[in-house]
Design a protein around this nucleic acid. Sequence first.
DNA 1: GCTTGACCTGGAGTGCGCTCCAGGTTGAAG
DNA 2: CTTCAACCTGGAGCGCACTCCAGGTCAAGC
Lengths: 119, 119
Amino acid sequence: MYAPSEAARRSGFSLDTLRYYEKIGLLSVGRTSGGRRVFTDEDLGWLVLFRCLRDTGMPIAQMCRYAELAREGEHTAGERKALLEEHATRVEEQMRLLQHQYDHLREKIRFYEGLGDST
Amino acid sequence: MYAPSEAARRSGFSLDTLRYYEKIGLLSVGRTSGGRRVFTDEDLGWLVLFRCLRDTGMPIAQMCRYAELAREGEHTAGERKALLEEHATRVEEQMRLLQHQYDHLREKIRFYEGLGDST
DNA sequence: GCTTGACCTGGAGTGCGCTCCAGGTTGAAG
DNA sequence: CTTCAACCTGGAGCGCACTCCAGGTCAAGC
């Protein structure tokens, strides 16, 4: 059981972002009698996943879709897996593009090693 | 010498984006007597560079800085090179993070292979 | 000469993902 | 019991990188 600030510290998301994620229905966290949020280890697990998906460029709408499916129960496991696999494929493409452009960049830097060109 | 639509086609940027880049001073292209833009091969070269930098996540403000330095002449070559090297370093970090989160993602998918977990 | 499609400008609007704020509440420490 | 930092809510605002629009201009082909 973690207080909001602790959840923020552990997940790397800001308090505002955690509140935002709850507001849009991505996350649903428990409350104390007084109305304060209480994060469980399971919530933290979700945050780790969201960080993974966010860092790999998944749009929030798709994360919402995934979370919604998970809430619907075990029978959506196939669809959830498919969603992740499609995403993984896009990430692979992203990695290839990034590597390709990185190579370009390094080549450009090598031009400066010998002598600058005009661009 | 290329018309705007041809420059868009070759660079992969939209016409609006090309106009936008000019408006913010990132690019400066010639005109016909009638006021239409004319893109040279050198302009296209810049666009290739901008695509590389954009695809690797450089903010536009930094591209502007680079372009400005280039306009100032040969004596800024060192600073330009440093700018690109710093960027390349950030790209390397980005690639490491992406690879790391991709591995997470693949592991998550493997969970679904055996049987779904709840997240 | 006329048509028509590509082009021009300035400026407003969009989508995303937060981030900030005002004004009020809670609860642990002293 | 008091204090005060951490928390709450709804809603406005922001930064980025475009994208779209209205209303007008240019020039190649018929």
